[in-house]
Design a protein around this nucleic acid. Sequence first.
DNA 1: CCTTATCTTAAAATTTTCTTAAAGCACTTC
DNA 2: GAAGTGCTTTAAGAAAATTTTAAGATAAGG
Lengths: 224, 224
Amino acid sequence: MRILIVEDEVRLAEALSHILTDKKYMTDVVHNGDDGLDYGLSDIYDAIILDVMLPGMNGFEVAKSLRKEKIQTPILMLTAKGEIASKVAGLDCGADDYMTKPFAPEELLARLRALTRRQGEVLLDETSFGDLTLNLSTCDLMCGGKSTHLNYKEFEILKLLMANPKAAITKEDIITKVWGYDSDASDNNVEAYISFLRKKLSFLNSTVSINALRKVGYRLGEEK
Amino acid sequence: MRILIVEDEVRLAEALSHILTDKKYMTDVVHNGDDGLDYGLSDIYDAIILDVMLPGMNGFEVAKSLRKEKIQTPILMLTAKGEIASKVAGLDCGADDYMTKPFAPEELLARLRALTRRQGEVLLDETSFGDLTLNLSTCDLMCGGKSTHLNYKEFEILKLLMANPKAAITKEDIITKVWGYDSDASDNNVEAYISFLRKKLSFLNSTVSINALRKVGYRLGEEK
DNA sequence: CCTTATCTTAAAATTTTCTTAAAGCACTTC
DNA sequence: GAAGTGCTTTAAGAAAATTTTAAGATAAGG
């Protein structure tokens, strides 16, 4: 976690840096708005602590400029005055939170935790095996540059095989888990889908193959 | 934008709801912590306004329980006392921000904007995908020189698809987020609106298409 | 070889999704 | 309060994709 501190009061800047490095954050400190903007534009920070009153550009302007340049780094504004007007202005200029001086170190840390927790959203759930990646949300199967869509049953069967890469999955297993408990699907149904899947694997030029273990079931294998 | 209000003081709850509905938010109001948790677990809200002092579970407990169940909805805590201790506790319990009573309506709105901005939902006044630009305040959809107006449901559905360009959105998702939590809309309702949207996309000559993923949902795609 | 298990495919059956037109509703306007 | 407007819902047949079936081909094991 790397935090940028933009604060002109040297003693306060040092105090902030000290509090944060104690907690294993890495910090960079600059003392005016122009430098704050330059550093912020590097887009390497997990959060920016930004004083409102600064020589050169003020904090609002820095925040606004960063947002205009599509920098999404969470910004925590520091403000001396507590009036609502400036609070509102702070949030609307693109900042994510503000804190009034003086503040307790614990409050600073809590706010930073809140700000940084929100990042890292977008969890694409995927599973992989060999050179294959299966997108669990869209049922797309990718390999190298290529990609193809699996329909529902293909998807469920491949997911099952990928979830148990070392074991052999019996046709019975596949039927009860994909067709359902009391289905009357036959082994041939499974065989047909295995065939469809193999066709797609070969279209993708994957090194992964579906191996039949006679009288036992199927298992994924990777061609060396 | 759908907001859950958890507040036992009836008059305050009504005031909150009124402020928000004025600004075109949809609100649901409950008056105790247990209901707050139940509603929050439905995961259909864009933000939750949560009073600390509540009959039954208090606000901290509700927030903590929601986070334990992986509900990431931004939470704005309302607290009567201004001490730092409780503020910090509020943020560490999983809340994203807090506000002390009494507060100015403008501050509430600014905080909500800040909270919801952080989610992918982008409160800029436009979102784009491919050659499409959707104006979020006028509901106009633009492409190249042409432009057309979307009505409410078309708009909400397209916005949802554009906000999750990589994932598949299920019909269930669309129904709970656009028709609402306890609606009895059928899949066919969604299908009808998807059809309306496609007609408008083709009128605009857009390269964007709405792809059906059978048994899964819909996803935006761009014709190369 | 002969038997049995597995593969592969095309066509039939089924399910899901698409598209429309018409009906229903909520608001305005006259 | 009648008529008009714009959006939403309903319903039903059409279209499209998936799933099942079935039959012959291929491969493995004894």
